[in-house]
């Protein structure tokens, strides 16, 4: 039983880290800012979920689990919020148009 827990949490941790790594690479590799935000935001969330779950499985029932869950919830709320706010800010800062309009001729409405 314990072994099983170990294995599960191990898998969770490793996949979580893998997603995190992918996000980091994506932040470098993807062509423009908004796509990079995708990479960062989404992988952040999944990495947090997986890694924290992995840790939860290793923790005896107690306040630490509560804290871990709190971290999880907190990050899940704030991380997309932050990404969203950043993207919004960037768009208002005039970043959107440059790479987007070159390709996105199928847009019906060009942002101001």
């Amino acid at each position: 039983m314990l072994l099983l827990l170990d294995i599960i949490s191990g898998i969770l941790l490793v996949t979580g880290v893998f997603f995190g790594l992918s996000g980091a690479v994506g932040v470098f590799k993807l062509p423009n800012f908004f796509t990079r935000v995708h990479a960062a935001s989404v992988t952040d969330s999944i990495a947090v979920i997986l890694i924290v779950s992995g840790l939860v499985l290793q923790t005896p029932l107690g306040i630490n689990i509560a804290k871990l869950l709190f971290i999880l919830v907190f990050l899940l709320i704030t991380s997309p919020t932050a990404s969203h706010a950043l993207a919004k800010s960037a768009r208002h800062g005039g970043l959107l148009t440059m790479s987007e309009l070159e390709k996105g001729d199928q847009e019906e409405k060009a942002p101001k």
């Binding site: 893998f18 992918s22 996000g23 994506g26 993807l30 062509p31 796509t35 992988t43 987007e100 996105g104």
Partner: peptide
């Protein structure tokens, strides 16, 4: 996203709506 990251960048066709 992961697929996209590890794949080739040309697959990306971002759009706005």
């Amino acid at each position: 996203v992961t697929k996209l990251v590890w794949g080739s960048a040309s697959e990306v066709s971002p759009s706005l709506a």
